[in-house]
Design a protein around this nucleic acid. Structure first.
Lengths: 224, 224
DNA sequence: GCAATTTTTTATGATATAGTAAAGGGAAAA
DNA sequence: TTTTCCCTTTACTATATCATAAAAAATTGC
């Protein structure tokens, strides 16, 4: 179940938000101040924070900044309508999006879903200094980036997510290309080759890991 | 660098303020009267104004009112101790905060930081001499301005605020156009092209930075 | 070591995506 | 109203990536 932290000093607003979200299978926790929110965040795991800007003592921006010092949790800011600089607020230092009140239930849900679509996806996977980041769509080895084509990227991700598992060519096609693909098994070999080339070019010891299994397929070898 | 306009008729006070602020990376400009301050404000961009109340000819309140006729720059009033009525007065007129003298260096810095946290939320963003200023809605390269349309401006800001992040066309549309937009993906390309054209025309090496990621979207490359 | 089989490499045409230019629509300004 | 500017779409060209076939190298089992 997806859990959302609601932060607002007005109990009414908190109730309203919870009323909107709970029926859609979001588990809501209420915090009445920025300080309280930070306490919750250090103790529990949340998938999203809905953060009101106008709060006494510590306002939303300040809270957002403080949260960013220790967490990457997605944050949606709730601002008043009068702020004209539309996208400017969406760009705010660490917040992922914003919504102006009063807002409709639909709009709120849409923004939440949009954020979760991106952030709830697979997280970074790393294997001895090789980092595969699907959100940034980026692969790095020892902090220098490696440019891969979409298929190469998917292939690498599949192997890293299922280390030591042997994939047949048919299985790889099914996972990377999709079910309706009419791709030949040999095609996989070419992409494997290109992937190996690029990683080798970046001094990554790819041949120690990405192995062919004679007569079966390929696998990513983990010696641990 | 953050720039602050100091306004006071006493040179000593101006020196003292500058002495406090300069070591903390604030660039200070001195104005010896309200009239002078207004002249400066019409010609340059400041992030904050420190405005003394007790001044001959045009006092702080009047100056504050005049400034508010053309600018939203944050203003901190400097008043004598315990003039509560004045404080209320000042807030009504449009000042953002006040400080009573004599004051400690710490108190001054704290109030300045508090204001800047709110108002400076999205300040200028700059990337090797390319400056994106949402408050002035202006883009400059090496101090000569580049005229962009709203969409081009938003796009540029989004990229500069999230360097190295890859945006899909859908993601860009969501951020720049908004949720309910039914814009086609290729439309983004056109605006990217226009943006590139304008920056190229201004001799900015845009092609080194704004890159397309085949099959995915666009990103602003930062080689650091 | 040798033959059968599989994998890797190489080369090339096919396809998908990005870049460019231009036309048309609509809204705001003159 | 006309004019101008900006946005969107479409059509065309250029380029990057993909798929396939065939040759070369490697692996396996005898």
């Amino acid at each position: 179940m997806i859990s959302i932290l609601l932060v607002d000093d007005e109990p009414r607003m908190l109730d309203l938000l919870a009323l909107y979200l709970t029926p859609h299978q979001y588990h809501c926790t209420k915090a009445y101040s920025g300080e309280e929110a930070i306490t919750y965040l250090t103790q529990n795991q949340y998938d999203l924070v809905l953060l009101d800007v106008m709060m006494p003592v510590m306002d939303g921006w300040e809270t957002c900044q403080k949260i960013r010092e220790f967490s990457d949790v997605p944050i949606i800011m709730v601002t008043a309508r009068d702020q004209k600089n539309d996208i400017v607020h969406g760009l705010k230092i660490g917040s992922d999006d914003y919504i102006t009140k009063p807002f409709h239930e639909d709009e709120l849900l849409e923004r939440i879903n949009a954020i979760l679509r991106r952030t709830l996806a697979i997280k970074r996977v790393s294997f001895n200094n090789l980092v595969w980041d699907p959100q940034k769509h980026l692969v790095t080895y020892k902090h220098s980036s490696i440019t891969l084509t979409p298929i190469e990227f998917s292939l690498l991700g599949l192997f890293l997510c299922h280390v030591n598992q042997i994939f047949s060519r048919e299985h790889l096609i099914e996972k990377v290309w999709g079910f309706s693909a009419d791709t030949e098994g040999r095609t996989v070999d070419s992409h494997i080759r290109n992937l190996r080339d690029k990683l080798r070019m970046s001094n990554y010891p790819i041949d120690d890991y990405l192995k062919s299994v004679y007569g079966v397929g390929y696998k990513w070898l983990s010696n641990s």
